[in-house]
Design a protein around this nucleic acid. Structure first.
Lengths: 110, 110
DNA sequence: CAATATACCTAAGAAAATTATGCATAAGAT
DNA sequence: ATCTTATGCATAATTTTCTTAGGTATATTG
């Protein structure tokens, strides 16, 4: 698990990337997928995730659909058409940013 | 210039890295070096920088020395011995973090 | 001699996250 | 059977970190 300040600022990018791959996802699923892929090195907290998802919805980046699974409800999130563009731009901006940071910090490429 | 939320959380790492290369630097010099190296894509604001430098001093990561240049005063910052270790760890943690993000976001290495 | 660059600093407020809750159902373990 | 863990949503108080906006002063350049 990385210290918090590293992860700070990356959450939006991560979520948009996942949604641009998976077509449709619910919150809990996102937290688990990130844990899996990063071997618990990046853990998304719910207190950060849900407010962000609501914000994305308010911005029109995603739409939601609630689906009943037994007696529980899952809320699926899906990128809107403009949301897809936002996601592409955000990920590509982050990509560029990583390059810049590698140069700035004189880190070896992978 | 990247959107602010990307840079968020990276300032401490950047400063520690610069200090571990340059031996001794003053605040304004840091802002200029970062601008140069990143071609203005990352710009450190003074409102963020100086409080951080004071914090690093309070933590014992750096020591300071004020030097008069004509009638102006420059405040040079230098890593302490434990500070050097802190810097190495921080940069290497960030390096690892970048790798993890590249995998998570499925970005091509450079 | 005016504008820009150098050089430090702080304070108010915003933004994004953490931490701590809360509620409820489902599944697995003892 | 029942206790714990996992699933699944959510919010509210606080903290951290940054932006924005100031303030002061000297040095340099056009």
């Amino acid at each position: 698990m990385y210290s918090n300040d590293l992860i700070r600022g990356t959450l939006r990018t991560i979520i948009l990337k996942l949604l641009s791959e998976q077509d449709s996802m619910y919150g809990y699923e996102m937290t688990q997928l990130v844990r899996e892929r990063t071997k618990d090195k990046i853990v998304i907290t719910e207190g950060a995730l849900y407010p962000l998802l609501h914000q994305l919805e308010a911005e029109g980046v995603v739409t939601t659909e609630s689906v009943s699974i037994g007696k529980r409800v899952r809320k699926y999130y899906k990128l809107t058409k403009p949301g897809k563009k936002v996601a592409r731009e955000k990920v590509s901006e982050f990509d560029e940013f990583l390059h810049t940071m590698q140069i700035l910090l004189d880190l070896k490429p992978i």
